[in-house]
Simulated assay, not measured.
Amino acid sequence: MSDNRKRLASAIRRWLSGTGSPAESKFVELYYDSFETEPDITDEHNLEERALIFKRISASIGEENQGKVRRMGWWPVVKIAAVLLPVIGFISWWMLQSGHHTYPAITAYDAIIRTGSTEYKTCKLTDGTMVWLSPQSTLKVFAQAGAERIVELNGEAFFDVHTDMERPFVVRTAKLHTTVLGTSFNISAYNGSAAEKVVLLNGKVKVAAAERKADAIVLRPLQRVVWKKNADSLLVTDDPDAVLAADRRKGIYNYRNVPLKEVLEDVEKIYNVHVKYSTSLDACNFYGSFDRNEEVKRVLQKIALTLNGAAVAEGPQVYLLSGKACY
């Protein structure tokens, strides 16, 4: 039993001996209903103590008058409220002490969905939105209440948002807030990454920097927006290859003139490996594709072929990529 629950058991014993405070006494009376689901607390009391608890609670709430129906005026209600206020204060104190914190609705999660290394997940949210989560990603789904449907993403995911004109769908990442009504788009935003990007296939989305929401921009189909750490700004470009983003949810990765660094970052996340290469290759771009079901060595050899180089294993989950420098 935790120290906090031991303190609760001690409060119950003080109540039995008549030395507890009024707030503790009322709290115990209310808490007794949860004894069946808190065996680690009730086990601290023997049968005689439990019987005494029940007897005292029964007397305090007048169970000996069961079967009689009484109408209460407003004054009894006021007195009950006056009693419950300190009880609520005590309950709040106990929850904070024991780690059961209460939060505003905006931080109440319906679910937290995670993927490990090399793992993909497809899930359907309660509003009907479909999400394809890539490896090493976390999606927090906030309680579906209020004027917006909100999720929080660390990693990469493809969203097919269920249309609800009255409740926009909002994806929060470390640096971007993306708001949609109903559309399909891909977001890549791993914590600590040098860039975050949103690629829109169809529909319309509004994207804003998390710290500058007033500077929001609206994307049209087949456009992308990129936030880069070194520039701390949003760059919008046309992306005729945006449809290729939809294949990523299936584990098919297509690249057309994509910086080699970005390609290798994908490889590292997908296969949970580390790829070493010379900075002389930073200026290289890659044209090609691979499937997540291919062996990582084969994928790296395919990339090395475009560089007139080679890919060799240096150790468990570590590879060295070499090639001709790009200028």
Rank of each mutant, 00 (worst) to 15 (best):
residue 1 M to H: 07
residue 3 D to K: 06
residue 5 R to Y: 13
residue 9 A to R: 02
residue 13 R to E: 11
residue 22 P to W: 04
residue 41 I to S: 00
residue 53 I to L: 14
residue 55 K to E: 15
residue 69 V to Y: 11
residue 76 P to S: 08
residue 78 V to N: 10
residue 80 I to M: 11
residue 90 F to G: 12
residue 90 F to W: 12
residue 93 W to H: 15
residue 95 M to P: 01
residue 104 P to C: 01
residue 111 A to M: 15
residue 113 I to V: 12
residue 121 K to H: 11
residue 134 S to I: 04
residue 139 L to I: 06
residue 143 A to Q: 15
residue 146 G to E: 05
residue 153 L to G: 00
residue 160 D to F: 08
residue 167 R to K: 15
residue 170 V to A: 02
residue 174 A to P: 01
residue 175 K to A: 07
residue 176 L to H: 13
residue 178 T to F: 00
residue 178 T to A: 06
residue 183 T to S: 07
residue 184 S to C: 13
residue 193 S to W: 02
residue 197 K to C: 05
residue 200 L to A: 01
residue 203 G to Q: 10
residue 219 L to H: 07
residue 221 P to L: 01
residue 228 K to T: 15
residue 237 T to F: 12
residue 239 D to I: 05
residue 242 A to G: 11
residue 242 A to P: 10
residue 243 V to G: 09
residue 249 R to D: 03
residue 249 R to T: 00
residue 253 Y to P: 08
residue 259 P to N: 04
residue 263 V to N: 09
residue 269 K to Y: 05
residue 270 I to Y: 01
residue 270 I to S: 07
residue 271 Y to D: 07
residue 274 H to V: 14
residue 279 T to M: 05
residue 282 D to Y: 14
residue 288 G to W: 12
residue 291 D to I: 12
residue 292 R to N: 06
residue 293 N to A: 11
residue 293 N to P: 03
residue 294 E to W: 08
residue 299 V to A: 01
residue 299 V to S: 01
residue 304 A to K: 12
residue 305 L to S: 02
residue 306 T to L: 07
residue 308 N to R: 06
residue 311 A to P: 13
residue 322 S to C: 10
residue 323 G to L: 04
